Amino acid sequence: MSKGYMGDDGNLVRKRTLLTLVLIAVLLMLSACGGTDSAAEDNSDESTEKPKPGLNETTLNDVMTKKDNDEAFYVLIYDAKQEYVKNTKLLEAYDKALKEKDMTAFYVNLNTLDDDQKQEVDAMSEAYNNRTSGHNPFEDGGMAVVHGGQFNSAYAYQGTAWTLNTIIGDANTESNTFLDDDLYSDVEKEIQYNIDYINDQEIELTY
């Protein structure tokens, strides 16, 4: 009779162990899905690793690797709390506008970087200011065209200002979103500036 009870206890232990492992696996999957700025569609293609039209999440390290490899691409750079990004639907607006033009871009939120990465960005921003004047995507936020191993701003090229980081904060406090007509038209204008820039410079993107 004692053997029977030991068998039941053994089964109970195995069931509890299995249940614990299942719960751990579920928690790991949920944690892997968190930490992004927005509910914007993930446009990356895991089978080919080729980004699709619209916004594609990336990391600062990946951007720097692409830059150092002389790749040519668009990247949206901004510095804002993730809560603000979600509230203002920033990424949803850029994703929509880019898809309308069949354009592909990456995006990086400088606000989520660690201290070492922020120091790296500060150094790049200073080097950028020494090289050109006007709009600085690291300080002001906005899209940049990376080519020839450098970050370049279509706004600086056009001699036009754009302070995306400030606008994100203003839109969050005023309950506006970038999908509203006035802000969305600004997003569309920015994208057109970037199209004009690569056409004028005859840049061939490497997507």
Rank of each mutant, 00 (worst) to 15 (best):
M1Y: 14
M1K: 14
G4I: 12
M6I: 12
N11I: 13
N11P: 00
L12K: 09
L12N: 12
V13Q: 08
K15N: 08
T17N: 11
L18S: 10
V22C: 05
L23C: 05
L23W: 01
A25R: 00
L28K: 01
M29N: 04
A32M: 06
A32S: 07
C33S: 09
C33G: 05
G34Q: 12
D37Y: 02
A39S: 10
E41F: 11
E41Y: 09
D42G: 04
N43V: 01
S44E: 10
D45I: 08
E46F: 12
E49W: 13
K50Y: 10
K50N: 12
P51F: 11
K52V: 05
K52L: 08
P53A: 06
G54Y: 01
L55R: 05
L55W: 02
E57L: 11
L60T: 10
T65C: 11
K66T: 06
D68Y: 13
D70V: 07
D70N: 14
D70H: 12
E71M: 10
Y74K: 07
K81S: 12
Y84C: 03
V85H: 04
K86V: 00
N87I: 12
T88D: 06
T88E: 06
K89I: 02
L90M: 06
E92Y: 03
A93C: 01
A93H: 00
L98A: 03
E100A: 08
E100P: 00
K101D: 08
N109E: 08
N111R: 09
Q117S: 13
Q117K: 15
Q119A: 15
Q119G: 15
E120L: 15
E120N: 15
V121T: 10
V121D: 05
D122T: 15
A123T: 15
E126I: 15
E126N: 13
A127E: 13
T132E: 08
H135R: 05
F138L: 03
E139L: 14
G141Q: 04
G142W: 08
G142E: 04
M143N: 01
H147I: 06
A154M: 01
A154I: 04
Y155L: 07
A156L: 03
Q158C: 00
G159H: 04
T160G: 00
A161H: 03
W162C: 08
L164Y: 04
N165L: 07
T166A: 13
I167M: 14
A171L: 09
A171M: 09
N172Y: 15
T173E: 13
T173S: 14
T173P: 06
S175C: 07
N176M: 14
T177W: 07
T177S: 11
L179W: 03
L179R: 06
L179Y: 04
D181Q: 14
Y184D: 07
Y184K: 11
D186V: 12
V187A: 00
V187S: 00
E188P: 04
I191K: 02
Y193G: 00
I195W: 04
D196P: 02
Q201T: 03
I203G: 01
I203T: 02
I203L: 03
T206A: 07
Y207I: 06
